[in-house]
Structures are given as structure tokens and as C-alpha cells.
């Protein structure tokens, strides 16, 4: 699968595909000035994945501590794409990872979960202090 390697900045997340584990990871904060432009390579990568005939099982780990409203729209767009892929039989899973004390991010995860149908979407609370 294609490479995807975007380093984080103060206001954009790290986005990486790890080929060894077939995991796409989005980690950090997301409030770019031009959200559509920032996420364009990610959406293109996902389109390639969705359209590829081979049946590689991938996990998408989303671990964002803050995202603005336009990022929320892009995330919905991504989950809709994956939902459609799952409907067609692609093996894909989303892990929505949040700090166990962060109710806001947990609630966002729950709302995304309400809006998808076929995709495996797991809400995963992470123990605080476990990470750093």
C-alpha cells in the first residue's frame, strides 16, 4: 500500500500508515486553517485503499485530543467512506481512542458511532499517565 507520512504541527495531527501492522494512525490536534487542503492526501490515500482489489485488513486509530468543526466534517467524510467500504466487504476497523477522563472526545466518538452502519467502530478509553 502507498506510503502516508505526515508529521504533526501545533495545529495538525501526525498521520501515518504503518505497513507492518496495516494501521493508519491519526494522532494529536486538528484545527488547520484550510482543513480540506490538509486532509486531501489522506482522503486520496483512503480512496486508493477502498478501490484496491486486494483484501488487506486495516485498522484506523484516531487519537485526537482536540479538533475543530471543519475537521469534524472531514472525519465524518472519512468514516462514511470506510462505512461504504465495510458494506462492500472490506475488512476495516476504526479505533476511537480517548483519555478516560476526556468526556468531550468520548462523546464525539459516540456521535460518530451513531452515524455509521457497517463499520466496526470501537471506543477505547485510555488510562491517563499510561502514555507519556
Amino acid at each position: 500500500m502507498e506510503q502516508l507520512n505526515i508529521e504533526s504541527t501545533k495545529f495538525t495531527p501526525e498521520i501515518k500508515f504503518h505497513p507492518d501492522s496495516n494501521t493508519l494512525e491519526l494522532k494529536g490536534r486538528s484545527y488547520p486553517e484550510n482543513t480540506a487542503e490538509f486532509y486531501e492526501p489522506v482522503l486520496m490515500w483512503l480512496e486508493d485503499y477502498v478501490e484496491a482489489p486486494d483484501d488487506v485488513e486495516i485498522s484506523v486509530n484516531v487519537e485526537l485530543t482536540y479538533f475543530n468543526s471543519s475537521s469534524s466534517k472531514v472525519l465524518m467524510n472519512i468514516f462514511d467512506m470506510l462505512d461504504e467500504a465495510a458494506k462492500k466487504g472490506k475488512k476495516v476497523m476504526v479505533n476511537w481512542i480517548f483519555d478516560e477522563e476526556d468526556e468531550t472526545i468520548m462523546e464525539y466518538g459516540e456521535e460518530f458511532l451513531e452515524d455509521i452502519e457497517y463499520l466496526a467502530f470501537n471506543l477505547i478509553a485510555k488510562d491517563d499517565g499510561d502514555d507519556q
Partner: peptide, 14 residues
């Protein structure tokens, strides 16, 4: 949020 992205809007309209 479920609406398709609007090309003319720079944000998400949300």
C-alpha cells in the same frame, strides 16, 4: 455534517 463537503465553503459550515 453528513452533507457532502461544499466546495465553495472554506470551513465545514458547522
Amino acid at each position: 455534517r453528513k452533507q457532502k463537503p461544499d466546495k465553495t465553503s472554506k470551513g465545514g459550515g458547522l
